[in-house]
Computed example of a mutant assay.
Amino acid sequence: MFAVLFARFFNTYKKGTSHMSIYIGNHLMIHATSKGKGVKTAHFNSVYWKLKFINANQI
């Protein structure tokens, strides 16, 4: 069975909950970047994302 993990982050481009990503494994997530730069991968364990992490939900 395959599960999708969504993560929520705060204060990324505005106050409060402001960003979501999808965890794709191996400490990587995909997320939409600002200013029309498209979808990119990022390391889930980076200092930036660790400090802004709220929670994650599996569906």
Rank of each mutant, 00 (worst) to 15 (best):
M1E: 11
M1Q: 11
M1V: 07
F2S: 10
F2T: 08
F2I: 10
A3G: 09
A3Q: 09
V4E: 06
L5N: 11
F6V: 13
R8I: 03
F9C: 01
F10C: 02
F10N: 03
N11G: 08
T12I: 10
T12S: 02
T12Q: 03
Y13S: 11
Y13V: 06
K14L: 07
K14Y: 14
K14G: 02
K14D: 05
K15I: 05
G16L: 08
G16H: 09
G16A: 04
G16S: 06
T17N: 07
T17I: 02
T17K: 06
S18M: 05
H19T: 02
H19W: 12
H19P: 07
H19L: 08
H19D: 06
M20T: 11
M20V: 15
S21K: 01
S21P: 04
I22S: 09
I22A: 15
I22R: 14
I22H: 07
I22F: 13
Y23D: 08
Y23T: 02
I24H: 07
G25A: 06
G25N: 04
G25D: 03
N26D: 12
N26E: 12
N26T: 05
H27Y: 14
L28E: 09
L28N: 08
M29L: 14
I30P: 05
I30Q: 04
H31V: 04
A32M: 05
A32Y: 05
T33E: 10
S34H: 15
S34I: 07
S34E: 15
K35T: 07
K35P: 01
K37T: 06
K37H: 14
G38E: 09
G38M: 13
V39S: 04
K40A: 15
T41D: 03
A42M: 04
A42I: 02
H43K: 15
H43C: 04
F44A: 14
F44N: 05
F44H: 09
S46T: 05
S46G: 03
S46M: 05
V47Q: 00
V47E: 01
V47C: 01
V47D: 00
Y48E: 01
Y48Q: 00
W49A: 00
W49G: 00
K50S: 04
K50Y: 01
K50V: 01
K50D: 00
K50I: 00
K50E: 00
L51N: 14
K52R: 15
K52Q: 01
I54W: 09
I54D: 09
A56V: 03
A56G: 12
A56E: 13
N57D: 07
Q58P: 03
Q58D: 07
I59G: 10
I59M: 12
I59E: 08
